[in-house]
């Protein structure tokens, strides 16, 4: 009897591995192997024709930490993530609640909100490049109407990062809204009415019923926003190129620059490994903390 059970278990385990095998093979080929290769690469010096690359241990990492740009870029990215993640999530939620309410021209509102999502980031950036044009752009036209002097939004260190952040939020919020909209439509209207009868106003209902029920969606959107805050740098190429004076430079852009503009791949590899580590830590923390407090239906 016991043997049978053990055999059964072993067979199940075998099935499990067999089912996981194709994905595992692909993951190994395209994720694990490159990650390890990158790590390996980051331990060597940059090779030139005259001086071949030699093993350098963690020297590349020390170089990075010593570079003032490192601190700037990390700080920029923290601000970038710290603003774009919550703001685009909150906008998405508000827009979804609005687009889900019984308002006139509801489908128009929905598609209007969604439009930024279907534009490629490069196109969106070009659009905003025009908005931001000093004196001639839409934004200066408006501020000028109220008597403000023309501003070079993208060209000065004080406003460059903020301008990039605005574009990201504009681009992301509509996309996240769709997920919230889908989730909202699965919540039965009875709950709203039950809450109303129990004396809950709009705000209490939102806080005690709606937000908890939207939590799985929020986590999904949050993870996406976080990934984007590291990954989404297309618009930097069009808008600021990380400048002026590194004011809007983000980590991935910096890595790209090191690897493909300065051809310093070992340092780029070292930075990539640091990013991977940081993201891994965040992912673990997230699963530990947030998942536990979420109700999945």
């Amino acid at each position: 009897m016991n043997d049978m059970a053990r055999l059964q278990k072993q067979r199940l385990a075998l099935y499990g591995w067999m089912l996981a095998a194709p994905a595992l093979a692909l993951m190994s080929l395209f994720a694990f192997y490159p990650a390890i290769a990158t790590f390996w690469h980051s331990l060597f010096t940059r090779g030139t024709t005259r001086r071949p690359s030699v093993f350098a241990g963690f020297e590349n990492y020390q170089d990075l930490f010593a570079d003032p740009t490192f601190a700037t870029v990390v700080w920029n990215n923290l601000i970038y993530a710290g603003v774009t993640i919550p703001v685009s999530i909150i906008f998405a939620l508000i827009m979804a609640l609005w687009a889900n309410a019984h308002i006139p021209a509801r489908s128009f509102v929905r598609s209007a909100y969604f439009t930024p999502t279907i534009l490629p980031m490069i196109a969106a950036a070009n659009l905003w490049l025009f908005f931001y044009t000093p004196d001639l752009g839409v934004i200066d036209q408006i501020t000028g109407f109220f008597g403000a002097s023309p501003t070079n939004w993208l060209g000065q260190p004080d406003t460059a990062l903020a301008s990039v952040i605005v574009v990201t939020i504009w681009k992301e919020a509509g996309f996240f809204m769709i997920f919230y909209l889908a989730a909202l439509q699965t919540i039965p209207p009875d709950l709203r009415e039950a809450a109303r009868i129990e004396g809950a106003g709009r705000w209490t209902y939102t806080r005690r019923v709606l937000l908890p029920l939207l939590m799985p969606t929020t986590i999904f959107v949050f993870v996406n926003a976080m990934i984007n805050s590291v990954k989404l740098i297309d618009h930097l190429f069009i808008l600021t190129k990380g400048g002026p004076n590194n004011a809007s430079k983000l980590i991935l852009y910096w890595i790209w620059e090191m690897a493909f503009a300065y051809f310093d791949s070992p340092h780029a590899a070292a930075m990539t490994i640091l990013v991977l580590l940081a993201l891994g830590l965040v992912a673990v923390a997230q699963f530990r903390l947030v998942e536990k407090r979420t109700h999945y239906r």
Binding site: P188, D190, L191, E193, A195, I197, V209, M215
Partner: peptide, 14 residues
């Protein structure tokens, strides 16, 4: 000053 029982019960799932 009333309460209601819904056909679907309308219990809060979370």
């Amino acid at each position: 000053g009333l309460s209601m029982v819904f056909q679907s019960y309308a219990l809060f799932p979370h």
